[in-house]
């Protein structure tokens, strides 16, 4: 179990993908916020946030994601999230964030398809 957060940013079919590995909490969230800000500043209208390897997240992580989604939506963009960890999906449900300006998918292909729609 890792008490830290590793972040990789890459592009798939010209869409920025932020891949998280580890835990998102009050200590590690600044790394996520920084990565989101950079992608948004680079002018991306669509992006994917991959949470497949996140083994812990709480309201601080949700807050960072919501802030990023809000900023992205101000530029007409949309955040697509890959999340198949039951516990992480659960906190999205409890928070009600699933109804806001982001979409959550179980599979990468679905998220990529949605992200490509936005860039057309």
């Amino acid at each position: 179990m890792v008490l830290d957060l590793k972040i990789d940013v890459k592009k798939e079919e010209n869409i920025p993908v932020i891949i998280l590995n580890g835990e998102v909490d009050i200590y590690t969230y600044p790394k996520l916020s920084e990565a989101l800000d950079k992608v948004i500043k680079d002018g991306s209208q669509s992006m994917i946030l991959n949470l497949e390897k996140v083994n812990y997240m709480d309201s601080t992580g949700l807050g960072a994601i919501a802030a990023g989604a809000n900023k992205l939506s101000q530029f007409g963009g949309h955040m697509n999230i890959i999340c198949n960890q039951p516990q992480v999906k659960k906190i999205f449900k409890v928070s009600g964030l699933m109804k806001k300006n982001l979409s959550i998918f179980d599979e990468k292909d679905e998220a990529l398809a949605k992200a490509k729609q936005k860039t057309k």
Binding site: Y29, S33, D58, S59, T60, L62, I91, V94, L97
Partner: peptide
Amino acid sequence: EEVPNLGLGLVF
């Protein structure tokens, strides 16, 4: 620093 949490701590 402004720590984002959406005020959801007690809800959770």
